[in-house]
């Protein structure tokens, strides 16, 4: 079975200098970079937002650089990105944020989609207002809503960007427990924790810890 995320001689200076790595189906990996900017940049590469200067990256078997916009959108709809600040759209309410990718990509009824969104939020014991704008939420609740949005689409690849940075111990436990439990819910799901703080992903240990050093995975 083809690795869902594979770097092949990937070059994008100064982040990648001929990086090679296959993140196999079902694996949980922690990618440790040299800093926060590198984390953000690497996530852009993985989602196909940053174009490589050389080599290629295969996402779910496809090279994002060779795909049409529609096809790339289809690939991205099978991925879930958990952004460090939640990554919510500021003019949409919490409920609208969580349902947005589902409404855009799926043909399910509005009711079904709404129920999925609420179920995703309830995994975190959400007790806040579903119809609040992100600007009025606490930083933690914004992150919860962003996490719930990623979970709701039931992705094949989940990328956690600086996942536990800035969280209190209890919040960190909740997030990690949920992330590992979510990983096990779908066979073959790939989970990537991109962080600049090695060893911050605790609990169920990641099966692979990769360091991105001098542009290469080690």
């Amino acid at each position: 079975m083809e690795a869902p995320v594979r770097f092949i001689d990937a070059v994008l200076e100064p982040l990648l200098s001929g990086a090679n790595r296959a993140f196999e189906a079902g694996s949980v990996s922690e990618i440790v970079t040299g800093g926060e900017d590198e984390c953000a940049f690497l996530v852009k590469v993985i989602t196909g937002l940053a174009r490589l200067q050389g080599g290629k990256i295969l996402l779910l078997g496809h090279d994002p650089g060779a795909l049409s916009r529609e096809a790339l959108g289809g690939i991205r709809s099978r991925m879930g990105i958990v952004h460090p600040g939640g990554g919510l759209i500021s003019n949409l309410k919490v409920f609208e944020n969580v349902t947005l990718p589902l409404l855009y990509h799926s043909a399910g009824s509005g009711r079904e989609i709404g129920e999925r969104a609420v179920a995703s939020l309830e995994r975190f014991g959400w007790k806040g207002d579903l119809f609040e704008l992100p600007g009025r939420l606490s930083a933690f609740h914004r992150r919860v809503a962003g996490f719930a949005r990623a979970i709701a689409v039931d992705p094949e690849v989940v990328v956690y960007d600086r996942f536990v940075d800035g969280l209190y111990a209890e919040e960190k436990d909740l997030f990690l427990r949920t992330a590992f439990a979510f990983h096990k819910e779908k066979p073959g799901r790939v989970t990537l924790f991109v962080t600049s703080r090695g060893g911050s992903i605790t609990g169920d240990e990641p099966s692979i810890v990769v360091h991105l050093t001098k542009g290469r995975f080690e």
Binding site: V43, K44, T47, L49, R69, L72, G73, G74, I75, R76, S77, M79, I81, H83, G87, L88, I89, S90, N91, L100, P101, Y104, H105
Partner: peptide
């Protein structure tokens, strides 16, 4: 103002990473 705020807040990239093209949405 709205689009400028979204751009600076990285929301355009977030939309693209969700597979939602900014041009269409």
């Amino acid at each position: 103002t709205e689009l400028a705020t979204m751009k600076l807040g990285g929301e355009i990239d977030v939309l693209e990473s969700l597979g939602i093209p900014a041009a269409r949405y």
